[in-house]
Simulated scan of single mutants.
Amino acid sequence: MRGSTGTGRGARRRRIAGAGAVTAAALAALSLAYAPAAGAVTPTLATADYDCGTWGAGQARLTATQDGTRATVTLRSSVRTPLAVGADTINATLTFAKAGGGTKAFTGTRNPALPARGPVEIGPLSATVAPGDSLNSYFAGPALTMSIFGFPVSCDAVTSQSPGPFVF
């Protein structure tokens, strides 16, 4: 009759097993809370030098984001526009070299309004990425092409990205 009151060995084992299950669940929840986000690009910020011919040359800051297979890159350059440029009027393609071969192009017509002699900023430019895509500066042709007021502007990458390629 001792087991029927819930104070016997069986009840004690159930309480210990229940406490163990609660502890395991709490530990699992904590490990999920501190785990890195799945599908996050690293690094999120890189720099590289570009030469845009008569528009100038200099360092650009590249900021990348990722949401599943959708990725964006925003470029802020030390290259300056000679004239004021309205918002969302620069049609741009930023091409990266993929590790293992091939390229990945990020495209869009997004930019803030730029004052005359202000630094060129474009993006976010978007593309679809696959897990493990590793993207770095593209050297086999123009890395950045822009159409500003209908005039084509081509920029060549001069350096690889620092601290390293974007890995999605």
Results as ranks from 00 to 15, higher is better:
residue 31 S to M: 14
residue 80 R to N: 07
residue 107 T to R: 09
residue 121 E to K: 06
residue 38 A to S: 14
residue 105 A to W: 11
residue 24 A to D: 10
residue 54 T to G: 10
residue 70 R to K: 12
residue 133 D to I: 05
residue 165 P to N: 04
residue 126 S to M: 10
residue 29 A to E: 14
residue 69 T to G: 13
residue 119 P to A: 14
residue 79 V to Y: 01
residue 51 D to S: 12
residue 111 N to S: 07
residue 55 W to I: 05
residue 11 A to V: 13
residue 113 A to V: 12
residue 85 V to M: 05
residue 40 A to C: 03
residue 87 A to Q: 10
residue 109 T to K: 09
residue 37 A to G: 05
residue 162 S to V: 13
residue 141 G to M: 02
residue 44 T to D: 04
residue 160 S to W: 01
residue 66 Q to R: 07
residue 38 A to K: 04
residue 38 A to V: 07
residue 49 D to V: 06
residue 137 S to M: 03
residue 67 D to C: 04
residue 157 A to C: 09
residue 72 T to S: 11
residue 122 I to S: 01
residue 145 T to Q: 05
residue 4 S to E: 10
residue 109 T to M: 03
residue 60 A to R: 00
residue 8 G to P: 04
residue 104 K to Q: 11
residue 146 M to P: 02
residue 73 V to F: 05
residue 123 G to A: 08
residue 43 P to E: 03
residue 102 G to T: 08
residue 84 A to Y: 05
residue 7 T to A: 14
residue 157 A to L: 08
residue 79 V to L: 05
residue 47 T to I: 14
residue 139 F to E: 07
residue 80 R to P: 03
residue 45 L to Y: 09
residue 81 T to W: 00
residue 155 C to S: 07
residue 121 E to Q: 13
residue 60 A to H: 02
residue 120 V to G: 04
residue 77 S to G: 09
residue 157 A to R: 03
residue 114 L to C: 08
residue 156 D to I: 07
residue 43 P to L: 01
residue 46 A to E: 00
residue 163 P to T: 10
residue 27 L to Y: 11
residue 88 D to N: 15
residue 118 G to D: 13
